[in-house]
């Protein structure tokens, strides 16, 4: 008896908090049929928001994957100066509000900021352009790949790499032929998390965006904008699009979650 009470209490909690809301948004989106949704999604502003989101993701994700794998490897295999500090800095984006991350980029690249002063003097616009949004996105999604890669590297140990070395492989050959394939699922999993964060980031990019509709808004910013402009159909359509993307991401996470810590 007690078992069932707990089971249904827990399931009920999940249903009210997660499942029902997601169904409701799908229902609301299509309340007036398909064509308003299509119109809303094919508007210039929505297309532009999608393009901007994809552009930022396309730049930020490869940067973080390459850097994440390299840093993870250095942390696990080479002597890093002050490893505890490096670790703390890598985890910093998890302890900081995205708004604070956005603010720190804002302060650094603003008109009176350390880098901003130079940029403004030479007329190189960064703040309030997609470039600042990329910087903020790279910052918030920094830890995901590193945190996935390091434990797997530590688990597989150095024997395989040494075996490759003795068989005549150079350091690069050993990395690309032995190490990288061995950690590939961890890299994939970390990449999925990075994509999810880059696509969905709101607080950090909000602070460094120009806020202009059809130019400076990513999809999440566009959703917020449409709610405030009392345009629910457009808000729901864009929201549902993001929800669908995250559903795909969720399926990916589930598929790779069990593989990431296994070596084969």
């Amino acid at each position: 008896m007690r078992k069932y009470v707990l089971r249904y209490a827990v399931l009920g909690y999940l249903v009210m908090l997660l499942a029902v809301p997601v169904f409701v948004i799908a229902y609301r989106t299509f309340a007036h049929g398909l064509s308003p949704v299509w119109d809303a999604l094919s508007s210039h502003a929505a297309v532009n928001a999608l393009e901007l989101s994809l552009l930022i993701t396309a730049i930020a994700v490869p940067i973080n994957v390459i850097f994440g794998v390299a840093t993870g490897w250095f942390l696990a295999r080479r002597k890093m100066p002050l490893p505890w500090l490096v670790n703390a800095v890598i985890n910093m984006p998890f302890a900081m509000s995205p708004v604070i991350i956005g603010l720190s980029v804002f302060v650094l690249y603003g008109r009176t900021g350390w880098i901003g002063t130079y940029l403004f003097a030479h007329n190189i616009p960064v703040l309030f352009t997609w470039k600042a949004m990329v910087i903020a996105t790279v910052f918030v999604s920094l830890p995901f790949v590193v945190r996935e890669v390091v434990p797997v590297l530590e688990e597989i140990g150095t024997e395989q790499e040494q075996a490759a070395q003795v068989l005549g492989a150079s350091a690069l050959q050993g990395f690309f032929r032995v190490t990288l394939p061995a950690i590939r699922w961890a890299v994939v999993y970390g990449t999925i998390l990075t994509v999810a964060r880059a696509l969905g980031e709101y607080g950090a990019v909000n602070l460094v965006s120009s806020g202009f509709v059809g130019q400076g808004l990513t999809l999440p910013l566009y959703v917020d904008n449409r709610v405030n402009q009392l345009d629910p159909t457009a808000a729901y359509s864009a929201g549902l699009l993001l929800a669908l993307l995250s559903l795909i991401i969720l399926v990916g996470m589930t598929a790779f979650a069990s593989r990431r810590r296994r070596q084969t």
Partner: peptide, 9 residues
């Protein structure tokens, strides 16, 4: 190697 160090992939 003692534990073979097989390339698992």
């Amino acid at each position: 190697f003692q534990h073979y160090a097989a390339f698992t992939h």
